[in-house]
Amino acid sequence: MTAADTPDTSAAKTPKPVTAAPSAKTVPLKERLLRTPVALPLMTFLLLLILWEAGTRLFSVPSYILPSPSRILLGFEAVPPGRWVEHIWATLRVALLGYLVSFVVSLPIAVGLAKSRLLSGALYPLLVVIQSVPVVAVAPIIIVVLGTGDAPRVVITFMISFFPLVVSMTTGLAATPPELIELSRSLRAPSLREITQIRLPYATPYIFSGMKISITLAVIGAVVSEFVAAEKGIGYFIQFSTSMFKLPQAWAGLVILVAMSLLLFQVVSQTQRIFFPWSLPKGQK
């Protein structure tokens, strides 16, 4: 491959006479971007921010319609850091408690559903009904019934986040190879050990899929519950700021929520990666 092969085009398109042999330095930009997983989304995101900033300035969009990124940044200063921490903690606490309750409740239900067809027939439709109830509409009722405090908010969070967990756990528990169940039976092992030593570990990849979906839903649940009744929390803060037309600080709250969701998702992902590496799909270790 010399200039003789493609005399005209190479001269016209590439001013520098580079050799054709690909070295580390001549890897095309596109290839290099595809090889670094964070680079591409980060660039898209930055580009979007720049367009957003430029657009809002160029067309003088009022900040109560769409504040520019720089205005949102100023929105963070509207509230002292101590207050931010209080709001964040309020939301995080409810999200995590609700998530925990979801997990603890889902596990025995999933075991029951996977082990007993009778229970599955009796319980599953009920779960689907609960799942179909628009939790946002029930939230005010729950608040009235359970009063103020964390309890109603945790219940609302639980209702929004538990279903994917039950489904993924049940699927996982049922996915165990039948041979291992026969091995367990042939050893006449206690039934509980079949769950703890075979079915649950086998369900781990499924459980983590459910946990990843649920953790994000738990944050949504916490926010929804704050919309209904709260005097603290990011959801409350966003609603309060919006009602005062302080849109930049509402957006700042939104940014924090997104960051919180991403962070919690990462915590779940990394927990799987570090403690259950064998449960990752092939090629993701």
Binding site: P177, L180, L183
Partner: peptide, 24 residues
């Protein structure tokens, strides 16, 4: 019993798979 597929525990190493009958 030996099955058609080995059906080992994917999270357990060889030794733990072999002692599994005792553990279980």
């Amino acid at each position: 019993i030996v099955f058609q597929k080995p059906t080992l525990l994917p999270w357990a190493n060889v030794e733990d798979n072999v002692v599994f009958p005792a553990r279980h």
